[in-house]
Amino acid sequence: MAELIVYGIVLGGIIALGAIGLSLVYGIIGFANFAHGEFMTAGAYLALFMVTGVFSWIGIPDNTFGILSFGWRMVFAFPFSMAGVAFLAIFFDRVLYRKLRAKNSGPVMFAMSSLGTSFIIRMIIIIVWGSDYLFYRPGLMRPALEVPLGIKIRPDQIVILFIVFLLVGLLHVFLQDTKMGKAMRATADNMELALISGINTERIIIWTWGIGGALAAAGGILYGIDVQLHARMGWHFLIPLFAATILGSIGNIYGALVGGFAIGIAQQVSTAFLLPTYKLAVAFVIMILILLIRPQGIFGKG
């Protein structure tokens, strides 16, 4: 059981990275981005492209760091892929969502457009890489460490948790202590008043997409390192992402963090009682229960 909780924390951290971005975008632009899971997939595959393609071509050595399953190639691919997906998210906002905002489109239009966006990204990935399961380092033995309480944990998973907390910590400092971060919170709080205060809200929206996209990419890569890559991985993350976002109150990034861990742990612990194929159903049931019992989420005001 303790082991399942630890795995749940790892999965939860990955969900949280996606959920925070989803929540940020919802808080500022006010629509549910169904393509957010695909940003995770895109991040994972962009990193794959760098690790197995570009970096092998320019000759960065392929050896791994000791007991970890990745090396320098991944260290370079990680920020590159985050930046790449940040630009992808901003690109879709500029060519699509900004136009819908200008027309004062309703939430259904935004939801359907983002659903379309998710299909486009997923299909491009399937066309390029196919729909097989892929690994950053195929055929690598991935031994687990024994830690107290009989928990087996892979060194990769410790690094994954470290990166999750590092990214969340950086986001926290950005939002609390920088001028742009505060302006972002102000815009999420009251967009009209932000505009009145002279904040260029279109610029804030660009930053929001960029940060949301980058965090999603990080989540996707970490899932790829922890488990595997698949063209539908992000699509399957969509329900846990929404469950985490709603559980933690939509628009509240700290809530999304807590919600992510809660959903991740619930999904993993459920495998002690249920078939692992029901993991998604667990997230879905939690989401429905919150919507019925406390639709404003744990951190929302009644």
Binding site: K182, A183, R185, A186, D189, N190, L193, I196, S197, I199
Partner: peptide, 30 residues
């Protein structure tokens, strides 16, 4: 607002999730 005019709307005229100090900082954003 950059020309020197400030506006206080009738309702929803504060950032309610932010502290007083942060509200004033946002007033000085530009």
């Amino acid at each position: 607002v950059r020309k020197g005019i400030s506006y206080v709307p009738q309702v929803e005229n504060v950032f309610s999730s932010m502290t007083i100090q942060e509200n004033l900082e946002m007033g000085a954003f530009i």
